[in-house]
Design a protein around this nucleic acid. Structure first.
Lengths: 134, 134
DNA sequence: ATGCAAAATGTAATATTATAACATTACACT
DNA sequence: AGTGTAATGTTATAATATTACATTTTGCAT
């Protein structure tokens, strides 16, 4: 099974496309409504596409919001792990990358005799734009 | 409004009690089924009690699982922020405490010009017991 | 090119998680 | 005792996600 986005299926491409063109995370049913004209009729078609896209790392789920975002990082190695900054005011979401979260969490886990595998981190606060617009 | 657990209401005490006696995180509807004999009949009663318990820091939500756990730490200051180790094999959940996650995340956020307020962190892997039982 | 196996699809139904709306009751405080 | 806030009870419904099963497409070894 190859993993590049070129050989995504029609439904997968459709879902990825709508996410990539969205400036915000989207919910599954919002995605569904947006693409019903393109032949996708049931929630399951959306969820199946999302599952696959998440599996290959093109999409991440934001657990606290039941929302999905397309990953902007070419060759994102997040795959299963994700780290987000979520603005509580404007709902803007930024993915944290290129940091050493993995090793930091591994150490924290080890202190509890826990073997790290993956994580999801969601940090809430104010984004650059909203920080000053009080 | 005082916050100590002594002046919780009947429903809140009932919900907290079932969570405290559970060795695992529980889902809202599981809680509901478990306490229907105690006069709680509707989901909303459970969710309202949970909301309050979360607000005062006696209960935390595990976002990735839609589950709820009673906090074991007297005077837990987690309130809104939470950090968990979640075993992928046995579903055991441990809360990370007394660490410097707050300051670490603040710094990570600052690098992105983001003002940290709170977070939820869920680390998945193998707990002490399951690590060796392969 | 053919046939097989794996993956993806289509469709309907249903399960699970959570909230809206609104009338009522309990309780702390003056 | 009266008042205001929080909590409650109840019904209905919204929002999120999965099961089940029949069918089609695709990759790829022969």
């Amino acid at each position: 099974m190859t993993v590049a986005s070129e050989n995504l299926t029609k439904n997968q491409k459709t879902v990825l496309n709508v996410l990539e063109n969205s400036s915000e995370p989207m919910k599954a049913y919002t995605i569904l409504y947006d693409i019903q004209k393109k032949g996708i009729k049931s929630p399951l078609q959306v969820y199946r596409a999302l599952d696959k896209l998440i599996e290959i790392g093109k999409v991440h789920k934001i657990e606290s919001r039941n929302s999905y975002v397309a990953c902007k990082h070419e060759g994102c190695n997040a795959k299963t792990s994700t780290s987000f900054l979520i603005c509580e005011k404007c709902d803007n979401v930024t993915e944290l990358i290129g940091n050493n979260l993995f090793s930091y969490f591994s150490k924290q886990a080890e202190k509890n005799n826990f073997k790290y595998n993956k994580h999801c981190l969601e940090i809430f606060g104010l984004c650059e734009n909203c920080k000053f617009k009080n």
